[in-house]
Design a protein around this nucleic acid. Sequence first.
DNA 1: CGCATTATTGATCGTCTTCAAGAGTCGTGG
DNA 2: CCACGACTCTTGAAGACGATCAATAATGCG
Lengths: 216, 216
Amino acid sequence: MAAMKNARTAKRGRELLSEGSPIKAPLLIIEGWAARIRTFEDGRMQIVSFLLAGDLIGHCDHPRPLSVSTVMALTDLRYCEAPSPSVSPSLQAAYAVSRALEEAYLLSHIARLGRLTAEERLADLLLELLERLELCGLVEDGSYAMPLAQHTLADATGLTVVHVNRMVRQLRHQQDIVWQDGYLTINDPQSLARKLGRRPTRVTDTLEEPVSRLFA
Amino acid sequence: MAAMKNARTAKRGRELLSEGSPIKAPLLIIEGWAARIRTFEDGRMQIVSFLLAGDLIGHCDHPRPLSVSTVMALTDLRYCEAPSPSVSPSLQAAYAVSRALEEAYLLSHIARLGRLTAEERLADLLLELLERLELCGLVEDGSYAMPLAQHTLADATGLTVVHVNRMVRQLRHQQDIVWQDGYLTINDPQSLARKLGRRPTRVTDTLEEPVSRLFA
DNA sequence: CGCATTATTGATCGTCTTCAAGAGTCGTGG
DNA sequence: CCACGACTCTTGAAGACGATCAATAATGCG
């Protein structure tokens, strides 16, 4: 891929963007996981969304934009400057779909934090990650590489590490998930989704694909 | 204002858009409050964001978009079709800023639900509403018309009505707010914001104004 | 091998939910 | 004009869910 020629890397833990700072060029994640986070002055923090392969960082249409969240690499990362949307109409459309999907995930996250129990939050998040990773072809045999520590899942679900640990144990004992050796499998995603009243994320009528497909 | 010639109205409680249904024309709220909500099959629901005067409903750049949330009128509403962004570059910029602000509020909402206590959530939300209503000139002497029932604040903060009621009482007793006759006053917004570690919402370097200013 | 990070489990505590009931307000129709 | 029902607000009591505190394994990395 042309854009990947000038790919860059970032070590786990590095901040790619800092809340309140100006946004320069939009970036595209090629490989690895990142998170958008909000921090409070007293040290509390909340993961606002996860960024996976094919996701964009800091695409804005207005002049002199400021970042509204900090973006941090959760794993070692490969990324590049996002190709300008003006190069092709299909890329422009892909960006629009990507943006819409991103918004949909934010709304889901809000509903998750506002109205689901701890167990449901965790299960729902793991299902969303399955769905998203499937879109970029990172799921094999229903399993995906899970690079996150339970501590990070706590930052995302608004829970404590201790309680996340208990909920993971619970999901394991219920045979809902298998999580070992850095890989996570949801045994019956359909039925788990049904149990949570979870609908698949759709932002278009058609079968539009997100940005990542253009680079697959 | 030209666009307001073909203004329409909606009664409180009416759905302007339904989750999963196709989005036709984008709408612009002229007067009144609406909410974007997510519902679960078992009856649980979560308010994902509030829509105030000057806010857009269903502006998308991709083809055949589906709504990712239900939009419901919280008060009687006046609205119109959103003028096409192609009519003027400044309108286009205003839409971009509006979109960025909307995203910022979603992120704040996530952090609020994930990491704040009940009292903090309520106070933080009331401060955000103050900030937003100020932008559209709906604040006088530090007070704004508060058309929401405590029940609705519960839907937004992820709490129960009962607990919202107790938190309102607490904020009242602490002299943080005065809420009577449908008007809400935050006695010392600065100090309350500081207490919460709340930063003002900024999405640009400059002093760009949201869409509503174009219609003020 | 030593240190830092991550996972795990127990015990106790507190915030928020749930359940229940009563009072106040408002619009509507008889 | 008043009675009624729907909604909103309010408060109490009990219980549950998740937080906090604390300690001990694993695991992995330099």
